[in-house]
Design a protein around this nucleic acid. Structure first.
Lengths: 332, 332
DNA sequence: GTGAAAGCGCTAACAC
DNA sequence: GTGTTAGCGCTTTCAC
């Protein structure tokens, strides 16, 4: 592999001039620039990013750490982030934290975080203390619904409003006996707790009772079993709020398993607006988490942090909006 | 951030001894080792992976380059790969190539490939020439269905057999007028070409005619429109082979859009065995691509390549097996 | 078993 | 505009 010195020798200039050309630094003569680029071409030279990173302290790469690669929520977010970051000349690299306890520790180690210019950390599944232990000189932006140490920038959804809108929509469509799958008060402000608060607020406003069925994993299979079981015990249920669309897909299946019709017998709303929701049955109504909004804010924020701007930790909440599809009735 | 010299000073040893301890090199005295680890602890030292990488040429990280983060096929594969690599002490970093033409060029640049110990390149959407241009000193393993330069290691599915099994299963369930959505002969051995060959072989064996409806993007929305349109033109169709499960989800919706019942009127089989297929409708029958087999082979292969073993380029084909769910009938 | 010297390939800082 | 010097933090090599 040729190095910068090889290019310098080939072009008859110093390595600094080569570096200046390759980094588009302004103070290079046009003729020199051409000679350098020519030499680069002839030798097939490409820069050594590791060496650049060691010397300059910058890598041009942003890290995104997600719990799992195979959850569509992160896939969809990551895809949008990658596009937005590419537009500002940065590069996104995604790691999975939850492969094993060791790999989680490793993914969150200062050593690995330091290989990025900034780190976006999806904190699903991480606890306050895991995150509070983080020591890094690089900017860290937290994404997710847990309560987290306030010294970090943190973006989250408006979980409570989203759950409220979903539940009110079920009620406006005529549901009178509601069930939330995947909810429960965890005793601290988690995603589950906050969505449950929104669910219960909408019930209270309407003067209705509802029930909450927690599940351990937000997986379709678990939700499917849970909802079918509950519908058999409690046949009057006519509206289900699924804590996520993944859970929602299981709820749709569980409603069928119980011998009931989605929408006509039991309305269903999810949360996340995953792409596949549009095509399941007659469409799964859901809450859109405004990924584009989140992505724009994140990109702005890391730009400013990487530029070294000092601003207090940002705690931002993205809007949640209702998306109506065939699993619910319109009001009236 | 403390460096290795700081640790050496703190422990009263040389940097080399610190390095030897941290890398578990055998020739360190037990007492010295303790003193070093103690100093590491006290200073909160963590190694600088960039410096290590520059000097040693190894990073401990494997790169996986996929076209899109938001396609569940890659998410599911990446999740399994991450777990398998973690077990051998390596680390997986995933990049998206198709965010834009520039980001694709960048993701495939020698410069970026060189930051990994080995690169797994998912070649969906890349052409022979894109890949043939790759120059890198690091091992590259290709994953995907295109025909590719034989100098690379390459793992692919048994597309033809998979498509054949899917189609034969439709026929055994009673389908007599078959349609393939997303097929077509592209004139070279692509995924589409090979799956179409398998489809047509099964038809020929059964003495049946079938038709093939190409689509541009393998997206549910496109497939949905295509299949509904075709079913209206051609009402006798009673079996659809969808080129992927993503397409299959659109086919299920399109069958309903056309006023027909999945399975009773139109049997449907997909390909990929994505996780969500189990819970859509009564389940989407599909072809399983043996991700676990692929993952094992890939991990073995890169272990040997990274160890510097010289072996001819490996071209491996993973088995394809049928998974029967509610979108098709069992024979008889 | 431990340490000294050299250098991986680049860029920051500054001299000219 | 261009070149020189120094050094980022580590590992390789080799001496003891």
């Amino acid at each position: 592999m040729p190095t910068m010195s090889d290019v310098a020798a080939e072009a008859g200039v110093s390595v600094m001039t080569v570096s200046n050309v390759l980094n588009d630094r302004p103070k290079v003569g046009a003729a020199t620039k051409l000679r350098v680029l020519d030499a680069v071409e002839r030798l097939g030279y490409e820069i050594n990013l590791t060496a650049r990173g060691l010397r300059s302290g910058r890598t041009g790469t942003i890290g995104l750490i997600v719990p799992r690669f195979d959850h569509p929520y992160f896939g969809e977010l990551a895809a949008k982030l990658a596009v937005a970051l590419a537009a500002t000349g940065r590069h996104l690299s995604v790691e999975q934290s939850n492969a094993s306890p060791e790999s989680e520790r490793e993914a969150l180690s200062q050593a690995r975080l330091a290989t990025y210019d900034a780190v976006l950390l999806s904190v699903v599944g991480l606890h306050y203390d895991d995150v509070d232990r983080l020591r890094t000189s690089k900017p860290v932006v937290l994404l997710g619904e847990q309560q987290m140490p306030p010294r970090f920038d943190h973006l989250q959804l408006d979980n409570e409003t989203g759950a409220y809108l979903a539940t009110r929509h079920l009620i406006e469509g005529g549901a009178r006996k509601l069930l939330m799958i995947g909810g429960g008060d965890e005793g601290f402000p988690s995603m589950s707790t906050m969505r449950t608060v929104g669910f219960e607020r909408a019930l209270r406003e309407a003067g209705l009772q509802g029930s909450v069925r927690p599940i351990i994993r937000y997986e379709p299979a678990d939700a499917r079993v849970a909802v079918a079981e509950r519908l058999r015990q409690d046949p009057g249920v006519d509206g289900v709020f699924a804590i996520t669309d993944q859970v929602g897909i299981g709820v749709l299946a569980g409603v069928r398993d119980a011998g009931l019709r989605v929408r006509d017998d039991v309305q269903v709303v999810g949360f996340d607006n995953l792409a596949f929701g549009e095509h399941i049955d007659d469409g799964l109504s859901t809450i859109d988490p405004s990924h584009d909004w989140v992505v724009s804010r994140v990109v702005e924020l890391i730009d400013r942090r990487i530029a070294g701007e000092q601003l207090p930790p940002q705690h931002l909440t993205s809007p949640a909006t209702l998306v109506v599809r065939g699993s619910t009735r319109l009001p009236g």
